[in-house]
């Protein structure tokens, strides 16, 4: 296997027409390989979410294309995005855990539905499997029987992840999955994503504006600004020695992290310690 699992090539998304047209994403290209976590960072409105929606086929492109295992799945002017029988391969976790689950469906049921559709299970098999899957990512049976409104933000995000994992996808697009949940839940979710990558050889696109999380999770990172990818490269290198002035501004704008971006021994040491505190169960499988 030579090429990337998922590739976005020169993606441009335009909203509106004529003089009012607004380019949410412009000429963005990125690749994802199996077992790799790639980050996308950028401020609000930089086009991160739009890019994610393109990759799963929720958003039409003005130009450019998305390739899945070398096959084009999203192209300009094609109305039907990712072909139906290919959809299971790329799944998505949405930013807002409060709207990403059907309020009238119990947690296990949302997962079981995806299992029934994609894994050709009977109702009962799917039900059992849903409980097992939820259990494996830290939702116990009593929580699985609840409606979303009785679950916390972090728990809902886990249910969303379980639902996305149900078809056994090859790629997971995680659109700021941690932005609406509290810090300790964020850390556990990050560890969960790490575990999924190693256990399932899952390729994950991790979209975030939390640079500490991005540094902890990803090997490569793309920095977006006003719809363009302005800087790409190995995460450590980009965050430690940003070449683009915008990346530097982004790093500097983080509260309490001033100076971290500029390569500086002391700053590096501080950030490492800070990360240890935030992600105690780094590679251990426990921690839930």
């Amino acid at each position: 296997m030579s090429g990337p699992l998922l590739e976005g090539r020169d993606i441009t998304v335009r909203f509106g027409r004529g003089a009012d047209a607004f380019e949410a994403v412009r000429d963005a290209s990125l690749t994802l390989h199996p077992g790799e976590i790639v980050g996308v960072v950028g401020e609000s409105g930089s086009g991160k979410t739009t890019l994610a929606r393109v990759l799963v086929g929720l958003q039409q492109v003005a130009s450019g294309a998305v390739f899945l295992e070398g096959q084009p799945v999203v192209e300009a002017r094609s109305r039907e995005s990712v072909p139906k029988n290919e959809r299971w391969k790329v799944q998505m976790v949405f930013q807002d855990p409060y709207s990403s689950l059907n309020p009238r469906m119990r947690a296990w049921s949302a997962v079981a539905e995806a299992l029934q559709v994609w894994r050709e299970m009977t109702r009962n098999q799917a039900r059992m499997e849903a409980f097992t899957l939820l259990q494996s990512i830290g939702i116990d049976e009593s929580q699985a029987r609840r409606f979303p409104k009785a679950l916390s933000g972090g728990q809902r995000q886990r249910v969303s992840i379980a639902r996305a994992l149900a078809p056994e996808p090859k790629v997971l697009i995680a659109d700021e999955p941690t932005s609406a949940i509290d810090q300790s839940a964020q850390a556990r979710l990050a560890n969960l994503l790490r575990r999924l990558r190693s256990e399932r050889n899952l390729a994950i696109l991790f979209i975030s504006h939390d640079l500490a999380l991005v540094r902890y999770l990803t090997s490569r990172v793309h920095v977006m600004r006003r719809g363009r990818i302005v800087e790409s490269g190995p995460t450590e290198a980009v965050l430690r020695k940003p070449r683009h002035s915008y990346t530097r501004i982004l790093l500097d704008s983080l509260p309490g992290r001033r100076g971290e971006a500029i390569s500086n021994r002391r700053g590096e040491a501080i950030s490492n310690r800070r990360q240890e505190r935030r992600f105690p169960a780094a590679d251990g499988s426990g921690g839930f």
Binding site: G57, L58, V90, E113
Partner: peptide, 15 residues
């Protein structure tokens, strides 16, 4: 989002 998720999951329109 949860309806968009059904599109990503490729559920039928009837479902």
């Amino acid at each position: 989002d949860f309806v968009e998720a059904t599109r990503v999951l490729g559920y039928s329109r009837l479902r």
